[in-house]
């Protein structure tokens, strides 16, 4: 099956599972309706819950999804659809209350029946999960703590929501409707078992060991891994993997990193990591020999795609150079003759990683390099400031629309580059962005 067909099939299954409660409500015999607003609110609650439940699908960690969908898009969709599902679920009690203010009595935690208690707890969980996800950075929650809270809350919400609809026992008294919620719950549970048990078991069978740590710039290191008792990872240039060091593959403490090595060298796996003050601070202190578990590779970018055949424009901001080094190393190993334009933005000379390697690639590849520095120094010839539209216009050839653009860096830089490329009339389908921060 080709990528397009898989994409359509995935979207079809997603929409079907999300709308399944409504489809069954309308096609199977149901108890007589009560009033419009009450039934409307129940239907909204049903579809909201089914949509929220679909978020149990670990979008970033299912290989067949990451093969066909862009990971940044999947993250954004997960974010948007989560918020929509929370909104739909909240409309359920809101409409009930407006329609019949006596419903308020059900909110008294002392006298409320279990069906209402479970509903209230589910809603409180939804509020918390929304709050901690949207405001994670503002409330200074580190990624791993947030991840644990997020997963526990998601599980609690699913359980309470399920108890709520089961105990209300109005439409779920119909076997078809009950069957829908049993199927949905099996899918949610199945996803948890797969991601927290089956996948870690598989990863445990393929450990890696730290071979060496190379310092690339002031606060940037490359960690070179070698496979321990297996042939290694089969990856493409610029793919991503989740790694955890010196812990069990069952832990939630894992982080995604771009592979920075050549796809033609499966016997070693390279990740280039910048010290951002968190988990990444420990990379430079690794001695070698540490055990590392790798979950991946993920990502659907391919330098062999027909759209990249005429040449590549690689735009890196800071540590965004990591996947670009993977592309350059792969191209160099396969003696690729395509024209490649590298734009690499940094703060100062000290923060430029891979200076020597990039110089070597200029010999082995048809590569033009442009450095930009906010604070230029004396050693490297660089443009002052950021990668601007004018700079791209000056350095790129006239036939630039046929080139493929790969951008990797922090979000503000990516947004600025997208604007630059739009201003230069570069077609959307020729541009690929990779955001360098957690969603």
């Amino acid at each position: 099956m080709n990528k397009k067909k898989i994409k359509l099939l995935v979207l079809f299954i997603y929409i079907l599972l999300t709308l399944l409660p409504l489809i069954v409500l309308m096609t199977f015999p149901m108890p007589e309706g009560r009033d419009f607003w009450r039934d409307f609110s129940i239907a909204l609650g049903y579809v909201g819950l089914a949509m929220a439940g679909m978020q149990f699908i670990p979008t970033a960690r299912l290989q067949f999804l990451s093969d066909v969908f862009d990971m940044d898009r999947i993250y954004k969709l997960h974010h948007y659809l989560s918020m929509l599902s929370v909104g739909l679920v909240f409309l359920h009690p809101a409409i009930l209350l407006l329609n019949n203010p006596y419903t308020l009595l059900l909110l008294n935690p002392i006298t409320a029946p279990w069906r209402a208690q479970a509903g209230i707890l589910g809603l409180a969980g939804l509020l918390l999960i929304g709050f901690t996800s949207v405001l994670r950075k503002e409330i200074k929650l580190d990624y791993n703590t947030w991840h644990i809270i997020h997963d526990l809350l998601a599980l609690a919400i699913a359980i309470f929501a399920w108890i709520h609809i089961y105990k209300v026992n109005f439409y779920t008294a119909q076997p078809a409707m009950l069957a829908v919620w049993v199927v949905e719950a099996i899918i949610w549970g199945g996803m948890i078992v797969y991601i927290r048990l089956l996948k870690p078991l598989h990863i445990r069978k393929r450990p890696f060991k730290v071979k060496k740590i190379i310092r690339e710039a002031a606060d940037t290191w490359t960690m070179v891994l070698k496979p321990d008792g297996h042939p290694g990872l089969d990856f493409n240039a610029a793919q991503v993997a989740w790694i955890n060091i010196n812990t069990s593959p069952f832990t939630l403490h894992r982080n995604p990193f771009s592979i920075s090595g050549s796809a033609h060298r499966k016997e070693e796996l390279r990740f280039t990591i910048k010290n951002l003050g968190d988990f990444t601070a420990a990379i430079g202190e690794l001695k070698g020999g540490e055990r590392v578990y790798v979950d991946g590779p993920y990502g659907n970018f391919s330098i062999d795609d027909p759209s990249a055949k005429k040449g590549l424009v690689l735009i890196a901001g800071g540590i965004g150079i990591a996947p670009i080094m993977s592309i350059l190393s792969t191209l160099s190993d396969q003696k690729d003759k395509r024209p490649v334009y590298l734009f690499y933005g940094n703060y100062d000379e000290k923060s430029i990683a891979f200076k020597e390697k990039i110089k070597d690639f200029q010999d082995s590849l048809h590569l033009q390099v442009t450095y930009t520095l906010e604070k230029p120094g004396k050693k490297i010839s660089a443009e002052k400031g950021f990668i601007s539209k004018q700079l791209l216009d000056k350095k790129l050839p006239k036939k630039r629309k046929a080139l493929f653009y790969f951008i990797c860096g922090p979000l503000p830089m990516i947004e600025a580059m997208e604007d630059n490329l739009i201003a230069l009339d570069i077609p959307d389908k020729q541009v690929r962005t990779e955001k360098y921060e957690m969603a």
């Binding site: 309706g33 239907a43 909204l44 579809v47």
Partner: peptide
């Protein structure tokens, strides 16, 4: 670019969810 695909997907799901819910409630009134 700039979230066009995501926004369209979100809008489709919103319209489908609210529209079908209203349709169900209307059918129940018959």
């Amino acid at each position: 670019m700039k979230n066009k695909f995501e926004k369209r997907a979100l809008l489709i799901m919103l319209v489908a969810a609210v529209g079908l819910s209203a349709l169900f409630a209307l059918l129940q009134m018959q």
